[in-house]
């Protein structure tokens, strides 16, 4: 079973991701911000990461850069979860090393499609 790490400061959003992903057969672990995300990744590892952008302590960009700077997680796919669908944010996430993105509010089918597209 593949493990998905979801990083989001909103409990509601984490719960929604959890429900959609569990239904699709993924094991889900959660973190509340970028710092916590990196800690969790280091402690448990993950096959795919889904992260929010706006978070306290460390935002999604910082988190992705942190992942990409670590040889262990350089190759782990990251999907950025954000309501901000405009080109600037998306491009900035890509520049930071994001593998793909999911636009909030997400459709569970599209979410699982996106995860499958990046997860071996």
């Amino acid at each position: 079973m593949k493990t998905v790490l979801t990083v989001d400061d909103s409990r509601t959003m984490r719960d929604m991701l959890m429900m959609a992903l569990k239904d699709a057969g993924y094991h889900v672990i959660q973190a509340e911000d970028g710092v916590h995300g990196l800690e969790t990744l280091k402690a448990h590892g993950a096959d795919v990461v889904i992260t929010d952008i706006n978070m306290p302590r460390m935002d999604g960009f910082g988190f992705i850069e942190g992942m990409r700077a670590d040889p262990d997680y350089r190759g782990t796919p990251v999907l950025v979860l954000t309501t901000e669908s405009d080109a600037a944010k998306k491009q900035r996430a890509r520049d930071a090393g994001a593998t793909g993105w999911i636009v909030k509010p997400f459709d569970p089918v599209k979410l699982v499609d996106a995860v499958r597209r990046v997860a071996a």
């Binding site: 710092v35 990744l41 280091k42 960009f61 700077a69 520049d95 090393g97």
Partner: peptide
């Protein structure tokens, strides 16, 4: 270019010590 190898621990510490500086586009 591939990013230089960096230990996550060091990065975590840095992130906690200071608000993460805005990342520059690569």
């Amino acid at each position: 270019a591939p990013a230089p190898d960096l230990d996550i621990t060091a990065l975590l510490a840095a992130a906690q010590a200071q608000v993460q500086a805005p990342a520059e586009p690569a």
